[in-house]
Write a protein that binds this DNA or RNA. Structure first.
Length: 587
RNA sequence: CGGGGUGUAGCGCAGCUUGGUUAGCGCGCCACGUUCGGGACGUGGAGGCCGGGAGUUCAAAUCUCCCCACCCCGACCA
């Protein structure tokens, strides 16, 4: 039984000044967590109970699939991460340190390498596979900007599991098992979620899906189809390209004089305003133009290359999408100095003819999938004040490749069924990856198959942010008065409040009731504080967010107590003699 | 890393523009008394290197410069 008279907790009357999002504010105010370091939090007793409840549910669903729990150190040597390239690929996000002998160490951001090496250490036969092992452990990432309390911290708890299979079919089985286990887990945690196709990012590998909690404070933007069940992180959206057009009858391209048109809008306005350029059938729009954006790619090894991206002029290049495509390279803007250094680029009037690996500039040129063969564009003519009209893809220019980097707009067609997509925000609470063989290959994880042949093991990796889940659950379950925990993770089943003076009958009666509840298997938080006014106790009960509140108060004289559902606020009087049995039936 | 903001008692804040008593308010905390169903009241207390350093000045929370920390918005991720 938790007794508020002695529990190590202090609720705050005012919102902490440094907390913006609801979950952060309320978790601090209700005394669940305290900030201890930039991006680091201390769990107080109530918070730690919730944390362990979440952890237990996650573990339970892992164990149910027959996955086995292990535990690694968080402090690791450099070598394995060197072998997979992640010592450099992780960039500044990796916490690096040196031991007393000057050897490079790191605080693990995730554990693919160590798991692969552990399996290599112990297993060598196909008969040992498949295998799934997991751990629940703290991870460290030197985030550029920790924020929103538990939703984005630099040290956080993650359940990470890893599957090891002989082939892709086996990987698919374990991937599907995780997917199902995650669905059960989030349902038990009382969390709404969406599964979206995702990019693998620094993790590498092929297929991956994210579990997002739909929250406006989330940092991920995703799309979902208004008709079918397609959903994807915007980073991973695959544009459905229009069919290629025949270019035989397309008019020849011509360069036109377009003074003072450095932006798409000024260009379109000028084209529509001039008799010699106007279209007969309709006005020109930004979508008729081809915008060519040049950026600098900063590679993990420190070198840089330029990249040009061609997108329809009604869309910007989405830096997040672009970055996902070029990972592990990072994007930097193309500066004035960069333009000055490349005489073939005319800022504001860059056209395909100056781009491409075989062009004078030598800059790699990739285009949006909408730039199909036969499509005709208004685009830069590589001379100040000039554009080219009817430049036709496939006939007049050819890109070095295709890239998914254009902004996704609400209303864009679903790549699966063509209906409109809608855009929403969410926070990533789980991610499942089919890694394939890249880690095993880099680290030499092989087994012998039936024929005595060496086979590289196929891996998957699967993560759930445990501490983040606590934050997301709080964010999804709160109101203006405080937290409202789902029962499965709540620090208690029932919050018993005794009102009245210390000498009144309520306190001893509540004491008896609390003991009875506990004997009946209920987890009890008992506000047994003497000399604290009822108002304070009620406010605290609302703030702390235990799903059911029982007040032993003035109705006691008639043998009644008051039962309140924290979420709905519904109150009703119940006979003291019936209350325990009733509480046991609540869910 | 870029932009914006904030650092004064455990928490929330005022004071700073225009330098000048002993640095203030609310909450919380301690003691005593009253009160007791939605953050009660009285009386008396404790608690501060005004983020740090350097400077200007007879005099700095207040003016100047340099650091540091935190928060928010953008570029990164469970």
């Amino acid at each position: 039984m938790l007794r508020l008279s002695t529990l190590f907790v202090r609720t705050l009357r005012d919102d902490p000044a440094s907390a913006e999002v609801a979950s952060h504010r309320l978790l601090v105010r209700a005394g669940y967590i305290r900030r201890a370091a930039p991006g680091g939090f201390t769990w107080l007793p109530l918070g730690w109970i919730v944390f362990r409840n979440v952890e237990r549910i996650i573990r339970d669903e892992m164990d149910r699939e027959g996955f086995q729990e292990v535990h690694f150190p968080a402090l690791l040597p450099r070598e394995p991460y060197e072998k997979t390239g992640r010592w450099t690929d992780y960039g500044d996000n990796l916490f690096r340190l040196k031991d007393r002998r000057g050897a490079d160490m790191l605080l693990a951001p995730t554990h693919e390498e160590m798991f692969a090496l552990l399996v290599k250490d112990l297993y060598s036969s196909y008969k040992d596979l498949p295998l799934v092992i997991y751990q629940i452990q703290n991870k460290f990432r030197d985030e550029a900007r920790p924020r929103a309390g538990l939703l984005r911290s630099r040290e956080f708890s993650m359940k990470d599991s890893y599957s090891f299979d002989l082939d892709d079919e086996g990987l698919q089985v374990n991937y599907d098992k995780h997917r199902a286990a995650y669905q059960r887990t989030f349902e038990r945690l009382g969390m709404p979620y969406v599964i979206v196709s995702a990019m693998s990012g620094a993790m590498g590998g092929s297929a991956s899906e994210e579990f997002l909690a739909p929250l406006p404070v989330g940092e991920d933007t995703y799309v979902r189809c208004t008709q079918c069940d397609y959903a994807a992180n915007t980073e991973a959206v695959q544009v459905a390209p229009p069919a290629a057009l025949a270019s035989d009858d397309a008019p020849l391209s011509r360069v036109v004089d377009t003074p003072d048109t450095p932006t798409i809008q000024t260009l379109v306005d000028l084209m529509n305003g001039r008799a010699d350029l106007r279209r007969d059938d309709r006005d020109w729009t930004a979508a008729d133009t081809l915008k060519n954006v040049v950026v600098t790619l900063r590679h993990p090894d420190g070198t840089s290359t330029a990249l040009a991206i061609g997108v329809p002029g009604d869309r910007d290049v989405d830096m997040k999408r672009l970055e996902a495509q070029v990972a592990p390279a990072e994007i930097e803007p193309f500066t004035e100095a960069d333009f000055a250094a490349n005489a073939h680029l005319v800022k504001g009037y860059i056209g395909p003819e100056s781009l491409g690996e075989n062009s004078l500039s030598g800059i790699r040129f990739v285009v949006d999938p909408r730039i199909v063969d036969g499509s005709r564009w208004i685009t830069g003519a590589n001379q100040r004040g000039h554009h080219v009209v009817d430049l036709t893809a496939g006939r007049d220019f050819t890109a070095d490749g295709v890239i998914e980097a254009a902004e996704v707009h609400g209303g864009d067609p679903c790549p699966r069924c063509g209906a409109a997509l809608e855009i929403a925000r969410g926070i990533e609470i789980g991610h499942i990856f089919q890694l394939g063989r890249m880690y095993a290959e880099a680290l030499g994880l092989t087994v012998l198959d039936q024929n005595g042949k060496t086979r590289v093991v196929t891996m998957g990796s699967y993560g759930i942010g445990v501490s983040r889940a606590v934050g997301a659950i709080a964010e999804l379950n709160c109101d203006d008065r405080g937290l409202v925990w789902p029962r499965a993770v709540a620090p208690a089943d029932v919050h018993i409040v005794a009102t009245g003076k210390a000498t009144d009958a309520q306190l001893p009666a509540a004491e008896v009731l609390a003991a009875e509840c506990e004997a009946a298997g209920l987890r009890v938080l008992f506000d047994d504080r003497a000399g604290v006014s009822p108002g304070i106790k009620f406010k605290d009960a609302d703030l702390l967010g235990v799903p059911t509140i029982v007040v032993v108060g003035r109705g006691l004289a008639d043998g009644m107590v008051e039962l309140t559902d924290r979420r709905s606020g519904d109150k009703r009087d119940v006979a003291l003699t019936d209350i325990v049995a009733l509480l046991c039936t609540l869910d």
